[in-house]
Design a protein around this nucleic acid. Structure first.
Lengths: 202, 202
DNA sequence: CATAATACTATACAGAAGAATAGTTGTCAA
DNA sequence: TTGACAACTATTCTTCTGTATAGTATTATG
């Protein structure tokens, strides 16, 4: 990115602060008033910032500024699922407990949800209370960690899909692997998605 | 929260979508145009949503809407530190590699930074490549995981501050604990902050 | 049953806001 | 030294925008 002059940096910082505090971008005149200059001068600064790629301007629209990298594309509202019920559409409003704004760079894929883990079968990688990010997909690679719906209960396990059937394994050695014949697996087990991230508060 | 009518829900959903896509809230007229109604009718809906506590309106300001719970207070830009140099102010612009928008609910305390972990001394709880969230504080409780600056290198360790000196311990048993006399500790070791969260992409 | 809230139309107004015109002054690199 | 860029002033124009006035019809709800 091109270098900014001191004044341009100050203007960018003001726009960022304004957005952080107000929830919407400032008008050209608000920028001008803050620096005690005329609207035209402020517009010049904003144009320079646009030209140098630090923000985007929607011509003609009031408050039509978006901060590059901090715009709407930077954050995604990811739903946290409460209980997961079989048969229901996964992201139904009823199942969504809350949403969390996460950086898009963490959200790979477009159908993603969060799940709070309760058991310790995946210890030490995933512990009870952890929040896992799950990308919705019907199949996973051999050995991938996935959220699996067994009959009516969602669990996090490593999945080994083989000719002889399906094996669900926890990393915790005290957890006995679950084995399903192909017929059983087709009837009882449904892979909801792959675990692509873990967040743990300490 | 009070219940919304179907139309009010639709308006709220539109405002949310608009904000997500554009990066700033819609004007009253943009809401009106979307639903094919007059500005006054749209303003009525927005007033109802304000009265019921779903959004905040700044009277007289264009696009003066803020979504409650999704407003500026929901997301915090947390700096990711590249290398940490001793003596320098911790959050100096030079040391900030990038920032990441994280939900405020994850950010406890106001001076917080992120650090990418390189060693495996804290395995299996913290692995190389993990992103740890650190709350800046000069002292931590006995046994807390902290980011510690030893001479000029930042590491993540459990800290045991005792009368006999300071012990820095990794969870990984193959890592030999570091012991410092009180004099050595005062000279060489600086606690930067407590690790309050871990994010791992899988 | 009456009253409040909902959900609108139609028109109008004043101030807000982006942008345009027409300059000035200073800096800095080719 | 010359031209591009930066950083402004001052004024004007038109459109945008929130809000107000004055209604109407429908739907809840106590």
């Amino acid at each position: 990115m091109k270098t900014l002059t001191a004044k341009q940096q100050a203007v960018l910082a003001f726009v960022e602060d304004f957005f952080q505090q107000q929830g919407y971008p400032p008008t050209v005149r608000e920028v001008a008033a803050h620096f005690g200059i005329q609207p035209r001068a402020a517009a010049d600064h904003l144009s320079a910032l646009k030209r140098k790629g630090y923000l985007h301007r929607e011509p003609g629209r009031s408050r039509g500024l978006t901060l590059v990298g901090r715009g709407p594309e930077a954050v995604v509202e990811v739903p946290i699922l409460g209980q997961i019920a079989a048969g229901q559409p996964l992201l139904a409003t009823q199942q969504v407990e809350d949403t969390l704004p996460l950086p898009r760079s963490w959200v790979r894929g477009d159908e993603v949800f969060l799940l709070r883990v309760s058991g310790d079968s995946m210890a030490p990688l995933i512990l009870p209370g952890d929040l896992v990010m799950v990308r919705v997909q019907p199949r996973v690679d051999r050995g991938d960690i996935a959220v699996v719906l067994i009959y009516d209960e969602a669990t996090v396990k490593r999945v080994y899909e083989e000719a002889g059937g399906l094996v669900l394994k926890g990393d915790n050695p005290s957890f006995t692997p679950l084995r399903f014949s192909p017929a059983e697996a087709a009837e009882l087990v449904q892979i909801l998605g792959k675990v692509v991230g873990v967040y743990r508060a300490l």
